[in-house]
C-alpha cells in the first residue's frame, strides 16, 4: 500500500503549482484552470485521508467539491464572457477600470 504521505506531498505540490499559477498567469481562463487544479489537489488529499481513516466523510466531501467546482465553472465562464464584451480580451491586466 502506498503510504498516505506520498499522496499528501503530491497533492501539496499540485496545490502549490495551482496557487502560483493563479498569482503569476495573466489569462483569466488559465487562472480559472489553476483554481480547478487547486480544488482537485484538495480532492486527492481528501481521498488519501479518507483511506487512512477508513471512513467515508472524505469521499462524500469530494463529491461536494466536484459539484461546487462544476457550478463555479458555469458562473465563472458567464462572468468572463460578460467581461470580455467590455474589454475584448481575457487578459486580467485589462481588468483595470477601477484601481486595485
Amino acid at each position: 500500500m502506498v503510504p498516505t504521505n506520498y499522496y499528501l506531498i503530491l497533492s501539496a505540490m499540485i496545490f502549490t503549482i495551482g496557487a502560483v499559477g493563479v498569482l503569476s498567469r495573466r489569462n483569466a481562463l488559465i487562472i480559472f484552470m489553476c483554481v480547478e487544479m487547486m480544488l482537485n489537489s484538495v480532492n486527492l488529499t481528501l481521498i488519501a485521508f479518507s483511506r487512512q481513516w477508513d471512513n467515508l466523510n472524505g469521499q462524500a466531501f469530494v463529491f461536494i467539491v466536484m459539484a461546487v467546482a462544476a457550478a463555479e465553472v458555469a458562473v465563472g465562464l458567464a462572468i468572463l464572457i460578460a467581461h470580455t464584451h467590455h474589454s475584448k480580451s481575457t487578459n486580467i491586466d485589462d481588468v483595470n477600470v477601477m484601481k486595485w
Binding site: A28, V35, V42, E72, L80, H83, M98
Partner: peptide
C-alpha cells in the same frame, strides 16, 4: 459592474480553494 464580478469571482474561487484545503 462586470469588472467587479470578474474580480470577485477570481479571488473568491482562489480563496475557496484555500478554505477547502
Amino acid at each position: 459592474s462586470s469588472e467587479a464580478a470578474m474580480k470577485y469571482f477570481l479571488l473568491g474561487a482562489f480563496a475557496s480553494g484555500f478554505f477547502v484545503y
